[in-house]
Design a protein around this nucleic acid. Structure first.
Length: 587
RNA sequence: CGGGGUGUAGCUUAGCCUGGUAGAGCGCCUGGUUUGGGACCAGGAGGUCGCAGGUUCGAAUCCUGUCGCCCCGACCA
């Protein structure tokens, strides 16, 4: 039992100016964290208590699923990253950690980096330790601080530069084994979020820079989330928008026949889809081809979309480039022969087609059939361009961004889009890392094989905030029982009265005896202050001992998530509280 | 990295346009009155107005630079 007067819970009436969203304000107002710098937070005592509870639940579920805890350094030799498969992309978000002394300040390549995750550490580590099929499968995890130089930290712990993450890595002999490990983690994640009192949904996800063949994210629906989840309530399809597809393009649609000869027409000053759609040209956006030029690992490539569609940049990851970005007009003109606004991919009009790494077309352009596109000559477009006859296409793919209301790819019902916070992400990595570092094992036929890996992350600190975002009201946080910093608050309204103190002590002991973490509010504050603080901090069960009740021969129990005050006769109080605790513990 | 904003006491902020002794609320300290939903009265402590330069008799205020922070976008395992 901890007494509030000797503890440290600095609550605030007003919220700091830089806290925009409810969970961020409450984190600070309820005294869980304080900002130390941009994207850097100190956990105050009750914030730390919640972190510990989340970590412990996570640990239990990992171990139940057969994963083994270990701990790796936060400071990584940059060498290991340079040898890895994603250094060019990953270094953009990494902190360098060189020797700070005047004598050896690093100007060039970093000597050390702060770990944003640990694939580059555990793969070479396990390369040395796992050599036989008898050692497999293995699944390791740690709960540790990660460092990522987010370009724009925001929303408190939601996107911080330093944060706590559970990261795990599985090693299997083959694909089937890796699938089993992946499945076990997916199940364990579901249990972790359920036990922690969060409503998280599983969605198909993009693998991004991680690489790998399959991926799911665990999402907490919330307006303030960074991600969009595309989902279908009819059949249960759910995917991150970056990954989601829709059924706008009927599978196996026959190519439209040419509608006539292609002809060029003058479009001076028309450099946008909207301008071409407006008078005098009046070409509807869905009848236009949108031609975008990107740089992939230093080489230009073209993406063609329907004029009315937007590119989903993450989908370019499937093309095999390590890094990609929009090309600049200066890079585009020598290759295409025109500047953005007059670009097209009609056969024969590209000035230097051999410079291109490919021309990739979104499936949806089949719906255009015969459309209008740039002539690769500034101020001119081409009409009656037939997809099959005229466009130079390396291959088709899904590159467009899904919009709400489009048909579900599985069942055809309208898709919904919801904002969400990503709290967990699992990847079936395959051999991307093990191959790079030469992590192999020998099977029972003396044959050497590459280890098949998976990696699994849960943002612990982000989960804490997502939980507040999901569970609060106008007065403060409403903690789920399992992760509440304290579960029972015994509130002494008259801490000077010896009989009240004695009674409060007994009630607190009863709650503690039943397994609850108990906080005793013995501060010399007015009742209003205590009630406001109790609601703000969000302790699930409040037991109030006050002179008014004592005259009646009762104490009060009140659940934070309910309105009613339950009056309990003094004689039953200890038993009733213990029973309430026992009931809450078992759910 | 582009666009916008902002920096005044621990927190929330007024003053800045139009230059002239830096103000309030919360919090804190002392005393008193209060005591079931963030009390009241009286007194008090606390500010190099982010930093550097400039203009001026005089700068929180105007100008330049710089740093931090915030928002939008881009970006984002």
């Amino acid at each position: 039992m901890i007494s509030w007067s000797r503890y440290f819970i600095p609550t605030l009436k007003e919220s700091p100016a830089d806290a925009e969203i409810a969970s961020h304000r409450l984190l600070i107002r309820a005294g869980l964290v304080r900002k130390v710098g941009g994207g850097l937070y100190a956990f105050l005592p009750i914030g730390l208590r919640v972190m510990r509870k989340l970590s412990q639940i996570c640990r239990e579920e990992m171990e139940r699923a057969g994963a083994i805890e270990l701990s790796m350094p936060h400071l990584h030799p940059a060498e290991l990253w340079r040898e890895g498969p994603r250094w060019p992309a990953a270094r953009e978000i990494m902190f360098r950690a060189d020797h700070a002394g005047a004598g050896r300040r690093g100007g060039g390549e970093p000597e050390f980096v702060l770990g944003p995750t640990h694939e580059e550490i555990i793969t070479p580590l396990m390369k040395a330790e796992i050599s036989s099929y008898r050692d497999l499968p293995k699944n390791f995890f740690q709960i540790a601080t990660k460092f990522r130089n987010e370009i724009r930290p925001r929303f408190g712990l939601m996107r911080a530069r330093e944060f706590v993450m559970k990261d795990g890595y599985s090693f299997d002999a083959d694909d089937a084994g890796a699938m089993r490990s992946y499945g076990a983690m997916k199940e364990a994640y579901g249990r972790f979020f359920a036990r922690s009192g969060l409503k998280a949904v599983v969605v198909e996800a993009d693998t991004g820079v991680m690489g790998g063949s399959a991926s799911h994210e665990f999402m907490v629906p919330a307006e303030v989330g960074d991600d969009d989840v595309v989902h279908c309530d009819a059949c249960g399809y759910a995917a991150n928008r970056e990954k989601a597809s829709s059924g706008v393009v009927a599978a196996g649609a026959a190519p439209a026949p040419p509608a006539g000869p292609t002809e060029e027409f003058a479009t001076p000053g028309v450099v946008t889809i909207a301008a071409l759609a407006a008078p005098p040209h009046g070409v509807p956006a869905e009848s236009q081809f949108k031609t975008l030029v990107y740089m992939g690992d230093g080489k230009p490539f073209v993406v063609i979309l329907r004029g009315s569609d937007e590119l989903e940049e993450a989908k370019l990851g499937g093309l095999g480039f390590g890094l990609w970005r929009p090309a600049t007009p200066e890079e585009i003109e020598p290759v295409m022969g025109a500047r953005p606004g007059s670009l097209g991919a009609v056969r024969g009009t590209i000035r230097n087609p051999s410079a291109l790494a490919g021309i990739f077309a979104d499936e949806a352009i089949r719906l255009v059939g015969n459309g209008t596109t740039g002539a690769n000559r500034d101020g001119f477009h081409l009409r009656c361009v037939n997809v099959a006859r005229d466009l130079e296409i390396t291959r088709f793919g899904d590159f467009r961004r899904v919009r709400a209301g489009e048909p579900c790819p599985k069942c055809g019902k309208p898709l919904l889009i919801t904002r969400a916070i990503e709290v967990g992400h699992i990847f079936k990595l395959g051999t991307k890392y093990s191959e790079k570092y030469g992590a192999v094992y020998t099977d029972d036929q003396k044959q050497s094989h590459t280890l098949v890996m998976g990696c699994y992350g849960i943002g612990i600190s982000r989960t804490l905030q997502a939980c507040i975002e999901q569970s609060h009201d106008a007065d403060g946080i409403v903690w789920p029982w399992a992760i509440a910093p304290f579960q029972v608050l015994v509130c002494l309204l008259d801490p000077q009265a010896p009989e009240a103190v004695e009674l409060g002590g007994r009630l607190a002991a009863a709650a503690e005896g039943a397994g609850a973490d108990v906080l005793l509010d013995d501060r010399a504050e007015r009742p209003g202050v205590k009630f406001k603080d109790a609601d703000l901090v969000g302790i699930p069960l409040r037991v109030t001992v006050g002179s008014r009740g004592l005259k009646e021969g009762i104490v009060e129990m009140k659940w934070r998530n309910q309105k009613e005050v339950i009056k309990v006769p003094l004689a039953e109080a200890e038993a009733r509280i213990a029973a309430a605790v026992a009931g809450a513990q078992s759910t």
